[in-house]
Design a binder for these strands. Structure first.
Lengths: 261, 261
DNA sequence: TCAGGATTCCCGCTCAATGGTAATCCTCCT
DNA sequence: AGGAGGATTACCATTGAGCGGGAATCCTGA
């Protein structure tokens, strides 16, 4: 499928290059980039030059390169994420102001939860969520809310895979999870104590799009020992509805109509 | 430079494709994408397929395509923008809470101001700033702050170009601008009444990075008729210092030391 | 049923991309 | 100063991935 000996397309190599950068490696030399991607040296230099010309990568004084400003701009301008994020942010701040712990917004992507926004204290509590970070569906409150509102076949494919048990409260037994998902769908929220990290609990509720489909999950992470966690739920739900409205949602079509599809 | 008849590289075409999407066109059919980019039909389909495979584009039920979730993820994870934005957001919220009008964070890119974050009311006041949007340097308070803190040669290249006069208060006369830039640099902030839109004024201050270089501009847009605009300056400055600190800035090296370089 | 557009298939041509090797440029370290 | 090790650039023969015109097929609404 490509000119390369290894059979990769340029696009594939482009992805490799971009993937080489993350929060721990925001910039690096071209040689190191070549090493990290496993691409042949010459090829790496040539490709990087092409990317520099288009400003998809930027070269910094030291000679290192990093993801280009133009790249961020193009993607941000065209992506629907930004709209979602902008709609959600004010409501997330409200939640944040009341709950006082970190608030996140995540969606389902490639069988995982992808967090697209996160605000709140970086310090007070253990929360491994990062913007543009991923976590498994079965081990996060956000993931379970999203999964609970997915088609049954999809749920089964997820349940069919090996599920990592992070702590003793992580649910990994399919029947047990199935029951739990039904509960979540019915209640409209998920509360998960210490599913990934023992010390914290996650609470999540669904956010709806214009077509009444669940597009994201709004959640907060609170210390596990905190009293009456369920008291947090109404705030979350109200805010999630606010976000949904901002996205064009016009109130739910009371059950049956949708389920019949 | 490329296999194509038109002499474009794949990377160039990739940029064309991504550029075709913006907030007014977040998704479209492949045929329309071909039209917008001006690429040959077949080529467009082939390229789009490659991008779909890598999930740089996503196909939606209707058949339309849009910027892929994975693309947003890769860029967000690797870009320094996100770190800057995250550092700035809490402080921007503080400004926002006090000033009650829209607060923006912008930086210099390709001789324009690129806004990387914006929070605040979408309604109360005229403000054409958008996230990932651009505005000319000479006609925004952010732009002038950034320009004032740039090397002299760079300032001159900008001043040498034709400068659009948006309103009667837009400065377009180089000598006048030069004087104004000097003032801004000395004062440490810029106040520009109705430079792009008559009804609103912009106030901007610089944000510093670890090496004491100006990396961004923090600004607010307020109604022009508002009383004592300068009273807003201290809040902005304090917040900008907060952001700078969060970025690793350690207080300024009082002049000479740096200037001598 | 039909029309107009969107999408996929087909296929020969060709030059851009490839990647090895070698030369050059840096940057520390001694 | 000298030199070792890595980063970067230059060179170049080879070739298959990309190209894009054209035609067939699939939609979709009138």
């Amino acid at each position: 499928m490509a000119n390369s000996a290894s059979g990769e397309s340029i696009i594939g190599r482009f992805v490799k290059i971009v993937s080489a950068f993350d929060d721990r490696h925001p910039s690096m030399s071209v040689a190191e980039l070549g090493r990290r991607t496993g691409l042949p040296v010459t090829t790496t230099y040539r490709l990087v030059n092409d990317l520099l010309v288009e400003r998809l990568l930027d070269r910094e004084p030291g000679g290192n390169v990093h993801i280009g400003t133009r790249m961020w701009e193009l993607v941000s301008r065209g992506s629907k994420m930004v709209g979602l994020r902008e709609a959600a942010l004010p409501f997330m701040e409200d939640v944040q102001a009341v709950v006082q712990h970190s608030t996140t917004l995540g969606l389902l992507d490639s069988d995982e939860v992808l967090y697209i926004e996160r605000i709140g204290s970086h310090s007070t509590i253990v929360d491994i969520t990062k913007i543009a970070g991923r976590l498994p569906v079965h081990a996060t409150s956000s993931g379970l809310v999203l999964l609970a509102n997915s088609p049954a076949e999809y749920q089964e494919t997820v349940l069919a895979r090996p599920l990592t048990k992070f702590t003793e409260t992580t649910l990994t037994d399919p029947p047990q999870l199935r029951r739990h998902l039904a509960e979540i769908r019915q209640r409209g929220y998920a509360v998960m104590p210490g599913v990934i990290v023992k010390e914290s609990s996650g609470i999540a509720v669904p956010v709806f799009g214009p077509d009444n489909a669940v597009v994201a999950a709004l959640s907060v992470v609170v210390p596990r020992n905190e009293e009456n966690v369920p008291a947090r739920v109404p705030v979350l739900m109200a805010s999630a509805r606010g976000i949904s409205r901002a996205l064009g949602w016009r109130g739910e079509l009371k059950g049956a109509l949708r389920q019949s599809h």
